[in-house]
Amino acid sequence: MLNYLLRRILIAIPVLAGITLFNFLIINMAPGNPVEMFINPSMSQADIDLRKEQLGIDDPVFIQYFRWLGNMLQGDFGYSYSSYEPVAKVVGARIGPTLILMGSSLLLAYIIAVPIGILSARKQYSWLDYSATSFSFLGVSIPNFILGLGGIYLFALTWKLFPTGGMYTLGKEKTFGDLLHHLIMPALILATASAGSMVRYVRSSVLEVLGQDYLRTARAKGLSEFVVINKHALRNAMIPIITVVGLDVPLLFGGAVITEQVFGWPGMGQLMIQSIGSRDYPTLMAINLIAAVAVLAANLLTDIAYAAADPAIKYGKR
């Protein structure tokens, strides 16, 4: 197992290098450059060129990339082009809020979806099953920003239950209760898409397991229906679900970008949109790198969880 982990981590290194290279090229191919963002009419062409030289963006792209890579490997992510602060500090301040938002919405999605999926499977073709599958379909198909705007209109403007956005109330002490109050709406809305697809995965997975012979054996042993379902059926049904959880992480990242924007949540997604606007290359590169590491880590964790859940899977043995 340790061998396997080491191998997986070593394989991840070239993958990450590839991802950063592609990102760097794509960012540089986008029209416009950071200097154009703070040009004013009084600047001469010489001033502009000097500025470009100072930022190092007059060099060929590959040289720029390797300079960035070299610095990054030494722990230096450079300075933000728009705020002139170290990127590590700018991005670092945003990781926490994004983790809070993503983590709580992932948790919410499963707390909602797993019981509904199980119930839906056990009462197949009942009105409960039909409404669960219909709502999950709605959850998957309505875009986050529509749900977000609708939510803000209803819960924030009309009923005044939740704030319209932000993470804490301005000018007040930062308390956990205040955070929770601000978190509920964006987390729920970010959770809908994951919850919607998760309901369907859990439902079909449980349905498949319910028809298995070993459940008949479990019942023939005189075990109660509660034990049959929650011990014998569920452990088997959860194995395919683990894969879905792993696949959910990249989707959630994408969803977080939009949700953070709609709710003014001070996370990485919001920072990313701002950085794209100002062509803030170093900040963008750092965010991309973090996203890539998170996705690769999620995949690795999925595989480890798989081995833990399914005794027939053992890594590191040939």
């Binding site: 298995q212 023939a220 042993k221 005189g222 194995i239 005794p311």
Partner: peptide, 23 residues
Amino acid sequence: NRIRGNDISMIFQEPMSALNPVL
């Protein structure tokens, strides 16, 4: 449930699928 597996028990045709694979 007090009788099944206790007073009457049963074995099945396919032993490979009659046992729970994760326990």
